[in-house]
């Protein structure tokens, strides 16, 4: 396959950045999207150009590190799939593919397609945990959890923290990420004691990081590689309103 890639190039946070165009003519349909970029980079190095920086690690769809907006869609055209699991057979010979970083002021660009997602860590620091110091745990079987709750909690807990929800949201909101953690912990008995303090602190931190507000467009869940359901956001809303009413 022959492809034209239009890639966002930005040397560092202070650089203005620009789109650059590359031709690639030996792309195999069996390559993953990132392997296609590897091939491009190997050529750029030999030709004395600066290779394209992009985040990636596990390349099996679970670490949440890869983060590309491909032709306007976070993680590209295949649903429920991270960029690293997207393969070139979903593109055709002659395609022009535009690759951009996650765009959000809370995710400043570090270089090219690499952004700083530490805002997510700080949202978790604000309360995305159960305070259970090592050694203090009761016997595991003493906390039964109805299977349905465990199931819903699990669905929320599968969030990989990639940030596609923010990238896709017209408001650059981090609600789906935050709501996934609120829902995971809020549905389990272990999470109850800190439930309302948690939601207030996490939403405050989310707002402080400069993410936009949620307007229920549903874009987040449709690009989410793990299919975190939209109802997590409603659960967060319910918890936050209760917490607000309680004061």
């Amino acid at each position: 396959m022959k492809l034209t890639l239009k890639i966002w190039r930005q040397r560092n946070a202070a650089d203005k950045g620009r789109m650059a165009s590359y031709e690639l003519d030996d792309v195999s349909p069996d390559m993953s999207f990132l392997e296609m970029l590897d091939v491009l980079n190997e050529r750029l190095i030999i030709e004395g150009d600066d290779p394209v920086a992009f985040d990636h690690d596990c390349r099996e769809g679970i670490c949440g590190m890869c983060s590309l907006v491909i032709d306007g869609t976070a993680h590209g055209p295949q649903r429920a799939t991270t960029t690293c699991q997207l393969h070139m057979r979903h593109f055709k010979d002659g395609d022009v593919i535009t690759i951009e970083p996650w765009r959000a002021s809370a995710f400043p660009v570090i270089k090219d397609l690499v952004v700083d997602r530490s805002a997510f860590d700080r949202i978790i620091q604000a309360g995305g945990y159960v305070s259970a110091p090592t050694g203090s745990a009761p016997e595991a079987a003493s906390i039964p959890i109805p299977q349905a709750d465990a199931h819903d909690a699990f669905d929320a807990a599968t969030c990989i923290g990639c940030g596609a929800c923010v990238a896709a949201c017209p408001n650059a909101s981090a609600m789906l990420f935050t709501a996934a953690k609120i829902t995971h912990l809020g549905l389990m008995p272990q999470g109850q004691p800190e439930r309302y303090g948690r939601v207030t602190a996490m939403v405050d931190q989310m707002d402080a990081e400069g993410f936009g507000g949620c307007t229920n467009t549903g874009e987040c869940t449709s690009v989410c590689p793990k299919g975190i359901p939209l109802e997590t956001i409603s659960r967060l809303n319910a918890d936050l309103l209760k917490a607000t009413a309680k004061g």
Binding site: V69, G72, P170, A172, G212, G218
Partner: peptide
């Protein structure tokens, strides 16, 4: 929250 826009207008998935 999004001072730099996408070059390719994001496709509405929904």
């Amino acid at each position: 929250a999004r001072p730099v826009r996408y070059a390719v207008r994001p496709k509405a998935q929904e």
